[in-house]
Amino acid sequence: MAGERGTKLPVLVTGASSGLGLKTAKTLAVEGIPLILGGHDEQKTAAAVRQIREHAPGAEIELVDLELASLEAVAAAVDALHRRERPGLGAIVCNAGLQIVDGVRASRDGYELTFAVNHLGHFALVTGCGDLLGAGARVVVVSSDVHQGPRKSMGFPAPRWRDPRALATPGENAASDRDGRIAYANSKLANVYFTYELARRWRDRGITVNAFDPGLMPETGLARGYPAPARIGFRLLAPVLIKVMPIARTVTRSAADLARLVTDPELAQTTGEYFTGAAQVPSAPESYDRDRATRLWQVSEELVAAARRTSAE
């Protein structure tokens, strides 16, 4: 099983070159778990490997070129994972994510970039690697309590869910900071829908699928899209925010909680659940809408297929 010391099946971590992904990879490596790091910046990924091996000398680390903003690139990564000498995965940690606050951006496939990276790329990756995951494998999708709205996210705007095809289409008038944050909240709600639908579809295969909210981590680079004064202030105030804000956590603490969802034997049968830190808690009431989750799955399959047809032409 993934997470047992000496396992021969590696854990694939997306967004492992910095922040929560890097810290989680370090935590898993120290436990003797082989890793596959998914990333598209060679220099950052190489630096991540060096840092991991400083904490865990002799760690087993492989790399896969993964650009979640391009479904063609995701397909190439899936193919590369299948062509490994010993294919097979013990777990996938869908950690990579971004937040856009300076207007609308589109992915290489023409989809709204936040939705494309935070949801659609991971959807294509996990479903494409489904045959590499056996009984006992785990999938963890990093979501966020921003999907619950201001009551749970200290004022972050609530998602405004629409048909997934509309969410994937950049709007000409969505150009403000608030629009970008709403798109981010929508993508995090999509993460929860995907988690619950995947858990239902894979339950009979013995694969667990859970969503994880790491809390507000002021130390990470998620605010990199904000204006310079906000970024600087956020960084300088990080120690204070972690102490005074109930939802704020250190990266080290969140990484330990995330790694636990991959390794803890007591969670081997836990699937289709939402965790905030180490606590299993309810997600937003609207996140349990099965019709929405089914529709998101259907549209995601169609968008991935359309992108593949376009790249083949």
Rank of each mutant, 00 (worst) to 15 (best):
R308I: 09
M154S: 05
D291W: 11
K44M: 03
R292G: 08
K188P: 02
L132S: 14
A284V: 11
T127S: 14
T252N: 12
P159N: 08
L241T: 08
A268M: 09
R224V: 02
A73S: 13
R160Q: 13
L189H: 06
G149I: 08
A175P: 00
V11A: 00
Q99A: 15
G19E: 01
A124Q: 15
L132P: 04
G128E: 15
R205S: 15
L125Y: 13
T114I: 14
K188Y: 09
V104F: 07
R105V: 08
A96N: 02
G130W: 14
F234R: 10
W161I: 13
L236R: 09
T114F: 11
G272Y: 03
T208P: 13
T250I: 15
A2D: 02
H147F: 07
S107M: 08
I242M: 14
A306R: 15
R84W: 09
S283F: 14
T114Q: 14
T14N: 00
I182E: 06
E301L: 11
T195N: 04
R290P: 05
R108W: 10
A223I: 07
A183M: 08
G90E: 10
V251W: 00
E60G: 02
K188I: 05
R105A: 12
D291Y: 12
H55C: 09
P87R: 07
L267K: 05
P214L: 02
L222E: 03
F275N: 03
A48P: 01
D213W: 05
R165A: 06
D264G: 04
G221T: 11
D79K: 14
Y196L: 11
L120D: 03
R138P: 04
V192R: 01
F234W: 10
A238G: 09
G21Y: 01
A116T: 09
T252Y: 01
R249C: 03
F212Q: 07
F115H: 07
G38H: 02
D102S: 15
F275I: 06
L198G: 01
P159V: 08
A69H: 01
Q99N: 12
L258V: 07
A48L: 10
T127P: 07
P246R: 05
R231G: 12
K26Q: 12
L81P: 02
Y288W: 10
G121Y: 14
E72D: 12
I36E: 00
L98G: 05
D289E: 15
H82R: 14
V140C: 04
Y274E: 11
L98W: 11
G130V: 11
T14L: 01
T271G: 04
A69L: 00
A268W: 08
S70P: 06
A25P: 00
P229G: 03
V30A: 05
D177W: 06
A278I: 07
A223Y: 09
Q269A: 15
E67P: 01
A255P: 00
G155Q: 05
V101M: 10
K152S: 09
F123D: 10
A255I: 02
G39L: 06
D65A: 03
P227D: 13
A306S: 15
A256T: 11
D179C: 03
L89N: 05
A230G: 01
R181H: 04
A268R: 11
I52F: 00
R105E: 13
R253N: 09
V299P: 02
H82D: 06
R108F: 08
T114W: 14
A185F: 13
G155H: 08
A279M: 10
R260N: 08
A137Y: 13
